[in-house]
Design a binder for these strands. Structure first.
Lengths: 346, 346
DNA sequence: ATGAAAGCGCTAACAG
DNA sequence: CTGTTAGCGCTTTCAT
């Protein structure tokens, strides 16, 4: 009964007063430093019992103000409504909560100015660490964070000239491999449709495509589209591109977003897959599996990415790994070959 | 130069000292109460100029500790990786940032215990408001929040016996209408596959289906699946259900997640849509649009939901609307009729 | 019109 | 082993 009545926030001072001990003692007990400070067994028990009874919880704001720590991790992705990032966010969230950390996330829209604002907001709030899929142009801010000894893990892409912890996939090999698959199937006029971007992962993907084509001696056809969240502004250019290049026999979409939009265009134009046009996309995704025919796709190891990201960050936070300068983790992808890219399937 | 050197966090006390005024004066100016407090023009300008120069930003933690406000809104959804919730989160996030609020979000998994924990964590952190798609069983916590005068907006579903601000869609009419569409197309054995749930929106959807079938005099076939994030645990039961009930001529999926899994089953079993089986799903979604044939779906007005949610909450936060007890907003859905449910299409 | 000072709740250095 | 005390940076009452 008393328990429930204790609605008024009770503070460490109240406990100290009530139990005739000092705030310090309570604070030490709370922080598990009772042994270390050789506080009497009896006192410890009395305090713990009381805390239990009244359901006391320390005020995290005061703690943060005092210690400069917040138990909050900032997660900055390109767009939280993108299924790739949403899934990663979900997994990271779970792991973080289990380790006593909260996640505060946001979408950067690949906009460096917005990202800068967000970072400075997070710094003010004393977040303890950062997980970022960085847009270009925020090298300085990241460096500043590192200089301030803030744990920063980048993922999905990296920034040149900034040495941070990093979790990535092998983009170049992934597209190289998928393009090879297309050439082995006998496709020769293979287009690559992607967002126009200098982000590391996008450049690597493009490189992989180019390299594979070069080896085969085929001509590359690259269509770059301005990055945009709005489907219509992606569908438009793809439609124009496919209409203009009827001679293509395969198309490779460089991201899941481009891929889904591209698939929509193909459906709308009544193009037959794979007889008119073979299709491959980066990122696996419901839509691709369930399309008829199912679409060959490069599947990123979402769980592994999330796991590695959070593990690296938690390690940093536990300060045990201060001496490690930085680590890069590169994960492999899987090429799921399906009907959309099989010459034989016809 | 001086500007950049000022890396050490500068505080209100520093400013006061530097400018030979008191902390109070600075604070008043900072909070736009200079006029009200009749502080000298000249002083105000000097202070503002200085603040500008050194790029001073008040420490929000200290502000929160002192005022009890945090400028943070908690957003609790069922699962942030569900595209419906991810899209809503994205829109809400944008609007919130524009109004000076940050969003801290999390997934409840429809688990009342987890949700309770999260709420108590948020309370400790003094978040200013809550946006929640509530699981059942947290009526007491919501009531407690309301009693504590915390702004709470529920959406997607409501809780009986708890009167809060609310943004919903007309679930019952939506399924009624879609079921009617099926009967009008001549389908008679129409199954309804859904998560097993007593959440208001799920009950309403089921009611709509039942009502429409009742009017037609057809027998309902309802398959309830345990709520789960794991696709395999959804696909299994649906597969079993469809295999066992070969006589069905149409199936209505009650959520986007069930719908996508169901579609996968249909594909895997080689069932022809709509000739073997017509398909309708709640929630519109890429997958449905791009399926062949495209799937008839009930589309929720995502933007309108997000807009209304945040508008209602911001109103509450601006305290101007203290007198309003609570408001419910019910939005309409659109039934997008596509090939998957057309008898004539064959 | 401005300033001194209390205090939000907590931690930790420093005494005893 | 335990208590006193000084802040963390800010807001706000009360005095001047």
């Amino acid at each position: 009964m008393i328990i429930k009545q204790q609605l008024k926030k009770i503070s460490i001072a109240d406990i100290a007063r009530e139990l005739h001990v000092s705030k310090t003692t309570v604070s030490f007990i709370l922080n598990g430093r009772a042994e270390e400070k050789r506080i009497g067994r009896e006192v410890v028990e009395r305090v713990q019992k009381f805390i239990e009874e009244v359901g006391y919880r320390p005020n995290p704001l005061a703690q943060s103000l005092r210690t400069g720590k917040s138990n909050i991790i900032a997660l900055m992705v390109e767009d939280i409504s993108n299924p790739f990032f949403a899934s990663i966010a979900r997994l990271i969230e779970d792991r973080a909560y289990k380790n006593g950390y909260k996640i505060i996330y946001c979408s950067t829209d690949n906009d460096p100015a917005k990202t800068r604002d967000l970072i400075s907001m997070f710094r003010e709030r004393h977040v303890d660490g950062y997980i970022i899929a960085p847009p270009e142009g925020i090298e300085d801010e990241i460096s500043a964070l590192m200089k301030a000894k803030m744990p920063v893990v980048l993922f999905d892409r990296h920034l040149n000239d900034v040495k941070t912890d990093l979790v990535e996939i092998d983009n170049m090999f992934s597209t190289y491999n998928a393009t090879k698959h297309l050439t082995e199937q006998g496709f020769k006029k293979i287009a690559y449709v992607t967002f126009s971007s200098n982000q590391s992962q996008m450049l690597a993907r493009l490189d992989g495509y180019n390299k594979a084509l070069e080896e085969s001696g085929y001509k590359p056809f690259v269509k770059e589209i301005a990055f945009n969240q709005n489907d219509d502004l992606i569908i438009g250019p793809i439609t124009a591109f496919l209409k203009k290049n009827k001679n293509l026999d395969a198309v490779f979409f460089g991201t899941n977003h481009v891929g889904t939009c591209g698939l929509q265009v193909i459906t709308d134009l009544g193009i037959q897959v794979p007889s008119d046009l073979a299709v491959v996309s980066f990122d696996d995704y419901n839509v691709f599996k369930m399309h008829s025919p199912p679409v060959t796709a490069i599947s990123q190891p979402i769980e592994a990415i999330a796991d590695n990201v959070i593990t690296v960050l938690l390690n940093r936070l536990n300060t045990s790994s201060q001496h490690i300068s930085s680590q890069s983790i590169v994960l492999k992808t899987d090429l799921h070959i399906r009907g959309s890219s099989l010459r034989a399937a016809q």
